[in-house]
Design a protein around this nucleic acid. Structure first.
Lengths: 110, 110
DNA sequence: TTTATTTATTGCAATATTACTATATAAAAA
DNA sequence: TTTTTATATAGTAATATTGCAATAAATAAA
């Protein structure tokens, strides 16, 4: 075997895992960092920012797009990529709910 | 090729990626969920909760432990696993900082 | 001490990911 | 129309992950 057994987990658990997995590579963290700090959302700018070959960056962009964390729009010859806040909110809310649950637990046993 | 080129990214980016990657599997999300909602942090309870073989669960626990998201303490015959709030906070802070940056950006271009 | 219980490790097969070169595609510029 | 520019896809090799059965290790119980 070797494939994840998603059928044993809830939709929510699978969704959070997919989103976290998408962020689970430094190149994709770097892409998100870049999109957050700049107005240049053109694909070529991102490729220049990341020290990996253009097809590799394209592949990472595709993975972020597949889970909805970024969206692309055609801008003439180029493609403009932007963060989709609504999808990022899912992760933000997940970590917020963890914070709340941790506060409720008076003490960790270890 | 095939291995992640961490040398091209910042320590922060690599750290966030490693933490996110650890959460990037539904079994590990389920383990965290379980540890948040129960007082039973004994390894055997976690194994019963997750529909995967004991060695597989043990491996997932190890990965969470490797990045520091959980910590284990010996409890007689058994092992008690707990969430390490300080490490989780790193991810929480990362997503909080993203929220702030998104607010500063008046408009997304796409 | 012997046996049972609990957890970790080993070894393996199946699958997925990472990164690249080469190439395709599609719009813009000449 | 031809060429350039920008991005995506195909194909491939290297590496990593997932999951399990079998087994080891270590403590507890008998």
């Amino acid at each position: 075997m070797g494939a994840t057994k998603t059928e044993f987990f809830t939709n929510k658990q699978n969704e959070i895992a997919l989103l976290a997995k998408a962020i689970g590579h430094p190149a994709r963290v770097a892409i998100i960092d870049y999109l957050l700090k700049t107005e240049n959302c053109i694909c070529g700018d991102i490729v220049n920012e990341i020290s990996l070959a253009q097809p590799t960056v394209s592949q990472h962009l595709k993975e972020l797009k597949n889970v909805g964390l970024i969206k692309g729009s055609i801008e003439g010859n180029a493609i403009c990529y932007c963060i989709d806040e609504k999808v990022l909110e899912k992760l933000q809310n997940y970590f917020l709910s963890i914070s709340k649950k941790l506060l409720k637990k008076k003490e960790n046993c270890c």
